[in-house]
């Protein structure tokens, strides 16, 4: 479920770093907490963000969650398929439910992110 090649944030985003770019999404834990997702709002391609900036929102029938980027950088692609069919976020959050691709800032610091094992431990604590 929680892939070893991803990094994870305390805000329940996953980050898959591939060289100078990364793909970002929300974790299975997050989609489960939110319930059936009905709206996804993503940033525009070309927008730049600092780490921990709010970049969009995800709404389920009953709740709204802000979306943050754990990584500083520039948005190079957004997943319009998720905007059109938000249900993908529930059914496949770690693959087809990806949200944005970013070009990582040269000075970006990813040391605060967790490994899959650390994240699993983290959500065990949140679940209790």
């Amino acid at each position: 479920m929680y892939l070893d090649e991803y990094l994870y944030s305390k805000e329940h985003e996953w980050v898959h770093v591939e060289g100078e770019t990364c793909v970002l999404g929300v974790t299975d834990f997050a989609q489960h907490q939110l319930g059936d997702v009905v709206f996804v709002e993503l940033p525009e391609v070309g927008q730049t963000f600092e780490a921990d900036d709010e970049i969009g929102s995800i709404e389920s029938v009953k709740a709204v969650a802000e979306l943050y980027t754990p990584v500083a950088g520039e948005v190079v692609e957004t997943n319009e398929a998720v905007v059109d069919d938000p249900e993908v976020l529930n059914s496949d959050p770690h693959n087809n439910g990806w949200l944005i691709k970013m070009k990582i800032d040269a000075g970006a610091d990813l040391s605060g992110l967790m490994s899959a094992d650390q994240y699993k431990e983290f959500i065990d604590g949140e679940d209790a």
Binding site: G35, D36, S60, V61, K62, N90
Partner: peptide, 8 residues
């Protein structure tokens, strides 16, 4: 219980 299988 707020939901079981899912609200929808």
């Amino acid at each position: 219980p707020v939901q079981y299988r899912g609200l929808m």
